[in-house]
């Protein structure tokens, strides 16, 4: 049984060209659409397409290294989207704040308002699905596990009824993720300082990263539940 071939298999060699051309074309479409569009929120959405093109180009290499490079790249895309959309919101709010007479309309609101929606799935499913996702995420550990578990937390937070930003909880989450980050750094250094403890370092790194990513993604859920909340 040969586990890894000495050279890249022919299948990947023949897939490279179509994949990278697809990446270039998708990137071209995305960038051209951005070049032609004026509205900023549309440009923000279109950068998503450019990010997809990036995944194409990186994954086309078709080695384990390529996969390892995609994984965090995805999370970075997510993070940047979050930060930038928040800045867009801030900017618009500041604009309105500075000149409320001109910019505020009667139905406008600076803050998210509740709306009437009663869905069965929001009452029954969340606990179960969220639990499964979080459990699966913990089993996976690492980036992927963090993203999966974070998805579960997002879902759970979304379906909750409480309104108001839980600042205390946010602080707690930030603290957890800070500690997780330290764990991860510790694990990483341990790898090189004391290689005989590699198993410990592995678990430190993996769990640190899991906690970090999951708590961060879960934080999105907490932020979002203001917007998608019921009356």
């Amino acid at each position: 049984m040969v586990f890894i071939p000495p050279y890249v298999p022919d299948a990947f060699l023949s897939m490279y060209l179509p994949a990278i051309y697809a990446g270039l074309i998708v990137g071209f479409i995305g960038t051209m659409a951005i070049a032609l569009k004026r509205e900023e929120i549309h440009i923000l959405i279109l950068t998503d397409i450019v990010g997809l093109a990036m995944i194409f180009v990186v994954s086309a290499v078709g080695t384990d290294l390529a996969e390892a490079l995609i994984l965090p790249g995805l999370v970075v895309e997510l993070a940047e989207t979050l930060a930038i959309s928040e800045i867009l919101l801030t900017r618009e709010m500041r604009k309105i704040e500075q000149n409320p007479r001109r910019n505020l309309q009667k139905t406008s609101s600076m803050f998210p308002q509740p709306f009437a929606l009663n869905m069965e799935i929001l009452n029954t499913a969340p606990n179960f699905i969220a639990l499964v996702l979080i459990g699966y995420g913990i089993f996976l550990t690492g980036f992927t596990g963090g993203a999966v578990a974070g998805g579960g937390i997002v879902f759970y937070a979304l379906s909750k009824k409480a309104r108001g930003l839980p600042v205390l909880m946010l602080d707690g989450i930030a603290g957890v993720s800070g500690i997780a980050w330290c764990l991860w750094i510790l694990g990483f250094l341990l790898f090189f300082v004391a290689p005989q403890y590699w198993l410990l370092s592995l678990f430190l790194a993996a769990c640190g990263l899991l906690l970090k990513v999951a708590s961060k993604v879960g934080l999105i859920g907490l932020l979002m539940r203001e917007d998608f909340d019921k009356e």
Binding site: I20, G23, G27, T31, I34, E40, I43, L44, T47, V50, G51, A53, M54, V57, V58, A60, V61, A66, L69, G73, V76, E77, E80, T81, A83, I84, I87
Partner: peptide
Amino acid sequence: YGLIAMMCSLPLFGGASI
């Protein structure tokens, strides 16, 4: 600038992987 920084992930990571 943030929009540019986001778009830059394509040329930077893509260029490196090419």
